[in-house]
Design a binder for these strands. Structure first.
Lengths: 128, 128
DNA sequence: GAGAAGGTTTACGTTTACGTAAAGTAGGCT
DNA sequence: AGCCTACTTTACGTAAACGTAAACCTTCTC
């Protein structure tokens, strides 16, 4: 048997409340085992939680995160499904690449602003 | 006098409803001129709308977008303000860099998945 | 001058992602 | 036994970001 975790452990680790973790279960994003009525989380559940958090940092909705995680679980039996699957992945990639571009643009602007400010600041301080 | 736009023009250009554009005004994100009771948008308003949309693609809330846009409007009079300003910019940059990393990780996984799938697919099709 | 097209305010409705409170259970300590 | 602590379900509340409907101006066109 591998490592297991209680709900409070994971909540603390990821900086959310236990309510949040249960909510994700309600939404079908994780499905921990039970011991009596208590939830027991496996390392796999923990990985899924990590993926959820990353998705959230990317601004995805929980539904979108669910879709994304389904991608990892698809079984490659049917050719048709495989093709559809590849399309979905490509769409995702396109979105992500757009986001990456947005971030790089914004980062560039931030850097420019920062430079302007530090320059202004040093000017003011040499005048004194 | 420069170019001006009606609310429907901008809504259409950015793929949102007029309700949305007015909502952003309510939130203080844009402040178009008026001609009588009608809203008249300047190129500057349009730029702000573009920034709003980019912020949304990055998963920011409207409040966060407002903060970000305030950065562009700050006047560099007080040294104290300048220093605070630089801190804010650096925080933003840290967040953005984290997001960029998340995206790159996810992109890498998507690419890996895509490769697996195309490979599987070609295997299946040669067997036929 | 009647209506159609496009704009306006006001205001209630909706979805998402939880917060928060209530009330019960189950095991451990002393 | 009695209490504490951690967990559970149930359920109502809430903030954000609009959707949607109602009722009212203008202005243009025919």
């Amino acid at each position: 048997m591998g490592e297991t975790y209680g709900i409070a452990d994971l909540a603390k680790e990821f900086g959310v409340t236990t309510r949040t973790v249960r909510f994700y279960e309600d939404k079908g994003l994780i499905a921990p085992a039970r011991e009596g009525q208590r939830r027991i989380y496996s390392p796999r559940d923990r990985v899924r939680l990590r993926l959820i958090m990353r998705g959230k940092r990317l601004g995805l909705t929980l539904d979108e995160i669910a879709e994304l995680m389904d991608l990892y679980d698809v079984d490659p039996s049917e050719v048709t499904q495989l093709k559809q699957f590849i399309d979905v992945i490509r769409d995702r990639k396109t979105v992500l690449e757009g986001q990456k571009k947005d971030i790089e643009e914004t980062l560039a602007e931030m850097t420019r602003l920062e430079r302007q400010c530090t320059q202004l600041l040093s000017q003011k301080q040499t005048k004194k």
